[in-house]
Structures are given as C-alpha cells and as structure tokens.
Computed example of a mutant assay.
Amino acid sequence: MATTAVHGLTIGYEIIGSGRPWVITPGGRFDRESPGIREFATALAEYGNQVLIWDRPNTGESDVCFTGTSESTMQADILAGLLAQLDMAPAIIVGGSGGARVSMLTAARHPEVCTALSVLWISGGVYGLISIGNHYCSGSIEAAWTGGMEAVAALPEWAEVIAKNPGNRQRFLDQDPGKFIATMEQWLAAYCPRDDELVPGLPNADAAAIVAPTLVFRSGISDIHHRRETSEQVAERLPAAKLVEPPWGDTEWRERQAARADGRAAGLFVRWPLLAPILHEWANETLT
C-alpha cells in the first residue's frame, strides 16, 4: 500500500503495469479495494498500460477532507495534483458514477493532466441527484447538529475511513461542528438540479470546453440514478465525445445493486473489467 501527500492530505494509491498512463475512479464513497477496480486496472495493464487506482479523500486509507465548493470538486483537484506528483500526467481519466463526476471535473478544471476521458453511469435526473445528495450529506448534517463531531465519527458510513486511517477520527473531532454543517449543506446544495449544470459542480459552459477525446458509455434506460438522457446529453455537450453502448445489458446497474444487497456479489463494479478491451482499442485509435 502506497501513500503520498497531495495538498497537505495523505492519499492512498497503487500503480499497476507500465506504459500509457491511465487512472480509474469508482463511484460512491467506495475505495480502490472495491471488487472489480483492481481487476479492471489489471485488465488494462495487460495491454501495456500504466494504471493508477486511488482512494479519494473521504474514502479508503486517504485522509478525510471537508473543503471546497463540493466534495467532487475537492476530489478532482486532488486527483490532478496526484497525477502530477506521480509523473503520470497527462493521463487517460476513467470514472463511473461519482467517479464520472470527479473525472469530468478534473478534465475541465485541470486540462493539462487529461489526455483523454471516459465516463459511465453519470448521475443525473431530479431523483438521481437529490437522492445521492441526501445519501452523501444528510446523515452527517443531522449527526453534527444533534450530537456534535463525536456523533459524526460514530456513523457507520465513516467507519471504513477511520478503520483504514485511524487518524481520520481525530480529523473529524477537530472540525468545528458549525463550519462542518455549513460545508456539508453546501455540498448537499451542489446536487440540486440546475438548468446550467447537467453535472453537479460543472457548468455547462465548462463542460463544452473539454476538448479531450471522450468516450461516453450510454446508461441503461432502466437506471433511475444514472439516467440514459444524462449520458446522451453529456455526449452531445462535449465537443470531442463519442457515445457507445456498454458491454452489458440495460439492467446492469439494477442487477449489481440487487446482487450486492443479497450477498450474491460483493460489489457494484465487478464487471468493469469488461470495459478494458473497448477502452484500449478506443485509445489506440484516438491517440495514435
């Protein structure tokens, strides 16, 4: 397990393979150990690529951090710094769900670190955005309001980042509850649907300025969290984007959720390795 300091934060990461640099960012607050992520990186590395997998701040063994206009924006800035520090910039930036948002924000805010971009499962729609904002922020706001930072640190949703990085407990306790609540409410507000932001935190004008070649995987029509029309609209807005079908059926997201809920499969990303040959072929065609 490797760590490095980026903008004052300890960030956990791993580099697999050698060759053209890539980085993979999963969704949710899932870390690089989530089933499917290392396997996806290994599949890409077998084509002669160097692949970075990492723990975003607030995931895995990285430090928690409560700064920035949104959680995804903060993580995007850290990713840009991490790529530069590891001498992997510019890289092909790949992400899904929350990782898609971080990837797009990285490409928009730090174009110098992005050779190309690929995204899937892009969160969207009124229900999709409001539900994830509530999932990420509401529990911590309520806990801080009623019980202070001790109550926040005791929440099950933060148990993993404290177990993998014990110093994170003190980082929670060091937060001023009022400032923490204000930050989390700002992060929550970032998910409110807006006509000028198809992707939370990314103004449509900034998205249209992403000139890196981009591969967008179309979302399933059955997916209420990552709406099909969101993926199609992202592909329309980015000037160098190509929209393609994913290597699975329409109900992939629902099937992965159900399998994880009943214990049949350990994670949401277990079939992401199927993306590797598609991405490798696209990169070869686009960048050579």
Rank of each mutant, 00 (worst) to 15 (best):
G220Y: 00
V211G: 10
M74P: 00
S18Q: 14
G68L: 07
V216K: 02
P203E: 03
G27Q: 01
H280C: 13
S231Y: 10
G48V: 05
P246T: 05
A261K: 11
C137F: 14
T288R: 07
D206M: 14
S140K: 10
R271H: 09
R256H: 02
R256S: 01
P213D: 12
A76R: 04
H135W: 14
I141A: 10
G81I: 00
R38D: 08
A159S: 10
L117D: 07
W158R: 13
D31F: 03
Q175R: 11
R228N: 13
E14G: 04
I78H: 04
F30G: 13
M104Y: 07
D55K: 00
S97G: 08
N284R: 14
P35W: 06
G167I: 11
I92H: 14
E33F: 11
E245V: 01
E150G: 06
C137K: 12
A91H: 03
Q50R: 15
D223K: 00
E229W: 12
S18C: 06
R264L: 05
G178R: 07
G27R: 00
N58W: 06
E285C: 08
M88R: 09
A209R: 15
A240Q: 14
L82F: 02
R194I: 07
A266V: 11
S70L: 05
S231N: 09
G60D: 03
V119S: 07
R29T: 15
E61V: 10
S18W: 08
Q186S: 14
I132Y: 09
I278M: 11
N284I: 10
L188V: 04
A91N: 04
A153E: 06
Q186M: 14
K179D: 12
S72R: 10
P239L: 01
V270P: 01
A80F: 07
V113T: 08
P203G: 03
L279N: 10
P26G: 03
L279R: 11
W158D: 13
A266D: 13
P90K: 08
W54N: 01
L275S: 00
A261I: 03
F30P: 02
A182I: 06
R38T: 09
R20Q: 12
L129W: 06
P246Y: 05
G98V: 05
R20A: 09
V126E: 15
L215I: 09
P213A: 12
N204T: 07
E229M: 06
I278Y: 04
R260M: 07
R101L: 13
Q257H: 05
A108S: 12
I132Q: 15
T106D: 12
Q85W: 02
T42N: 13
A153F: 09
I24R: 00
G148L: 05
A266L: 15
A89L: 01
W282Y: 06
V119M: 05
Q85E: 08
D31G: 09
A265D: 07
E281D: 12
A266G: 15
R38M: 07
A2G: 08
T183R: 15
I78A: 00
D262P: 04
G19H: 01
A143G: 11
F217T: 00
M74S: 06
M1T: 11
